[in-house]
Design a protein around this nucleic acid. Structure first.
Length: 422
RNA sequence: GGCAGAUUACCCAAGCGGCCAACGGGGGCUGACUGUAAAUCAGCUGGCAUUGCCUUCACUGGUUCGAAUCCAGUAUCUGCCA
């Protein structure tokens, strides 16, 4: 019978002088050495990359999205396949996001665009006027849940914590996220307070629904549930959110249990990302994993790992790759630039990825210019490998005791863009 | 040989007397992208300069206060008729 104890976290090496640590997450589909970056495969595919390649480049897990898979092809089909992993031919651990991100990206995230045309930013984003009136919000929040208008066919769907949990159970990922509301940096403190209270109630409902579904679906391996912490940039709200979720309990077959881990959510400003993660690390239990949602830029990874985050997902490596840019130790670079027209060198000298082992900048640039889809594949592979390797190296530096030296060296080079020959 | 119609910036193409350095594509250049409505999106693309100025719409000449737009001639191209 599946039970919360089927999922666990073992602490490894602690980072001196901070909350950072290494560890191992044990899931029914294998272990994850942390810290770890997990590629995003929203619709049960890491866009443009074969799952075997994702595995070969060192990714330990992938994260998909409940909202997108609910709309298409429907969670029943994944259940029929025996879960997300079997469905997409990924035999390692899997995560799903709850659909909480879409509350923002299809709802208030749109408001952000409108806000930018306001007095403060007037004249800076001329196109928003043209775009804004024609678009409508595709997500509307109330206390019970969120009404989504499908971007695929316009159908209306209500997402509630219970709906999200049912869908995530059907999808069958090893780690699920509680249904939350993601706010933006543009929301007022008043709205953040209101939203956080809603997210707290949704977390309890998610946990209750999860306990019930775990009982109902005993033929499946145990699926872990992370509570998602919001609270924007406010210390009191973040700390309260952590304590609330830390103490939350539900009854699993007569046994009380809480969340199996925690998702750190919200829109972050780079300057205070580490600080916010640090507040959370102080409040959250040390023996539960902490997943920072949607973050993967090198400086953010260092800051968040140092402050105590264990796993990360973000679309950046794949999206940036599909849209023509690549990561290097010296910063992110747009490959379509004319200077690379006949550059026969790999994206990054010394990179061990499949792309760099076999292709030149000039070739991949040609693919982009010629509109060939292989460019997206090759750049995604490189960017994923870059990010996975960076986090692996950070993990090793914690074990070796030279995290801070590695951080200074890496970030010094990465952000010294102005010194880069162009 | 006759008749008709074309000629616009790198390419295609709108414009048919002033609001035109000239719509829109393509191409080119640059930038953005962090729980993916994203193989997407944005800006620039005659020259020079801080509002502005200068040289352009095949060429030459005219009409007009004012022409890419009207007239005449020239060149080239395309149809149709011999």
């Amino acid at each position: 019978m599946p039970q919360p104890s089927d999922f666990s976290f073992t602490l490894g090496t602690r980072l001196e002088g901070a909350h950072g640590r290494t560890g191992t997450i044990h899931t029914p589909h294998g272990d994850i050495q942390t810290p770890a970056y997990t590629p995003v495969g929203t619709k049960a595919t890491v866009k443009a990359v074969l799952p075997e390649v994702v595995k070969d480049l060192g990714a330990q897990a992938v994260l998909s999205n409940a909202y997108h898979l609910y709309l298409q092809p429907g969670p029943e089909l994944l259940d029929l396949h025996g879960g997300l992993g079997k469905f997409m031919n990924w035999d390692g651990p899997t995560f799903t996001d709850s659909g909480g991100f879409q509350v923002m990206s299809l709802g208030s995230g749109f408001k952000k665009v409108i806000d930018m045309t306001g007095p403060e930013a007037q004249g800076k984003v001329g196109s928003d006027d043209a775009v804004a009136p024609g678009k409508e919000r595709l997500a509307n929040v109330d206390d019970d849940g969120v009404w989504f208008t499908s971007h695929i066919n316009g159908d209306r769907h209500q997402f509630t914590p219970e709906v999200s949990m049912r869908i995530q159970h059907q999808i069958g990922a090893d780690v699920m996220m509680a249904f939350d509301e993601l706010t933006t940096l543009h929301n007022s403190r008043g709205y953040q307070v209101e939203s956080l209270e809603r997210t707290r109630r949704w977390a309890q409902r998610s946990l209750d629904a999860h306990a019930q579904l775990t009982e109902e679906r005993q033929h499946r391996p145990y699926q872990a549930l992370y509570g998602v912490i919001q609270g924007a940039q406010y210390e009191d709200l973040r700390r309260k959110a952590c304590r609330d979720l830390r103490d939350m309990r539900a009854e699993f077959d007569g046994v009380e249990a809480g969340f199996d881990g925690y998702g750190l959510g919200g829109a972050f400003e780079k300057e205070n990302l580490g600080t916010i993660v640090g507040w959370c690390a102080e409040e959250l239990p040390e023996d539960k994993p902490r997943h920072l949602l949607g973050i993967s830029e090198p400086d953010d990874l260092f800051a968040a790992i140092e402050a105590g985050a264990d796993t990360f997902d973000a679309v950046s490596p794949t999206r940036v790759g599909r849209t023509g840019a690549f990561y290097t130790d010296s910063g992110r670079i747009n490959l379509p630039r004319a200077e690379f027209t006949s550059d026969l060198s790999p994206l990054q000298d010394g990179c061990d990825c499949y792309t760099c082992q076999n292709y030149s900048k000039a070739y991949i640039r040609h693919l982009i210019k010629a509109d060939e889809i292989l460019s997206g594949t090759l750049l995604s592979i490189h960017n994923l490998r870059f990010t996975v390797r960076l986090v692996d190296d950070i993990r090793q530096s914690i074990i070796d005791g030279d995290f801070y030296e590695f951080k200074d060296q890496m970030l010094g080079r990465y952000y010294a863009k102005q010194n880069r020959p162009v």
